[in-house]
Write a protein that binds this DNA or RNA. Structure first.
Length: 260
DNA sequence: ATGGTTGATCCTCAA
């Protein structure tokens, strides 16, 4: 089973690039973030024509997450528990029935949090505390599950080209990295850093300032695996090539192969 | 050099 995560930065602007990539990689499950689309504006048809079931948690203009699957899906839910007043579309989960094992997949778009400090950074840290609560609850099932998406977290200095540039940024501040580490330390395996421990496996390059050309990137898209899912992990890959295509997202897809 | 890029949108904001 191939499970991919991809911050697409606008599903309508990205549709041709998405269809090309889906046709090339043929993931069994794809978790999309930053749809920037309401549910009824999502270009469902061309994706369904490729054989995918599409589950959307959209929001007009901003945010938005989706699960695409060529395998059966059950128990689809949307919205991160813990704050009934939170209207931002950043969380979707479902159980995928693989040929060998069922795997719960959670797609997430963690708040950016800039500028920090400030109310947006407070919202980010509050959201991460709720994520920790949800992660702990799901780990208690002791079953294969994963949480993947744009975490907007640079876990370690070697996960960006120049930590000095990011020192005061919400993606790299100590509070952010500490909150991320607390979640990982519940028992998760970071698939990309585990399979490829060498530095420089970036997943995001800002559009500005020639950062792709200079490889001034950051690793902020992560797949965290429960112990039972980590036991099924075969490998993890970054599809950097899509950044060279026409009208690319500022993120590239990251995907794992699971024996499930 | 207080710079520059992209997407969605109410003409600025979020990233």
């Amino acid at each position: 089973m191939i499970v991919a995560t991809f911050n697409i930065n606008g599903v309508r602007a990205r549709l041709p690039a998405l269809l090309d990539w889906l046709g090339d990689r043929k993931p069994d499950v794809a978790l999309f973030q930053e749809l920037k689309s309401a549910d009824d504006s999502f270009p469902r048809g061309p994706i369904e024509d490729l054989g995918y079931r599409v589950e959307i948690h959209g929001q007009k203009g901003f945010n938005g997450v989706a699960i695409l699957s060529r395998l059966p899906l059950e128990d689809v839910t949307t919205g991160l528990p813990g704050d009934p007043d939170d209207v931002q579309a950043r969380w979707i989960e479902a159980v995928v029935s693989g040929p060998k094992r069922a795997v719960r997949v959670c797609g997430l778009y963690l708040p950016n949090g800039n500028p920090a400090p400030g109310p947006k950074f407070d919202y980010k840290l509050d959201w991460m505390a709720r994520l920790e609560d949800r992660a702990r609850a799901l780990l208690a099932f002791e079953e294969p599950f994963l949480m993947a998406g744009d975490y907007n977290v640079i876990p370690q200095p070697e996960d960006c080209w120049d930590p000095a540039v990011w020192a005061d940024d919400a993606l790299f501040r100590l509070e952010t990295r500490t909150a991320f580490r607390r979640i990982v330390n519940l028992g998760f395996t970071d698939a990309l850093s585990t399979c490829h421990s060498e530095p420089g496996n970036y997943t995001f390059w800002d559009y500005q300032g020639g950062r792709w050309r200079r490889n001034h990137g950051a690793r902020i898209d992560h797949l965290l695996l429960s112990p039972q899912a980590a036991d099924l992990l075969i490998d993890c890959h970054v599809d950097k090539y899509v950044r060279n295509g026409p009208k690319p997202s500022d993120h590239v897809p990251v995907w794992i192969e699971l024996n499930a």
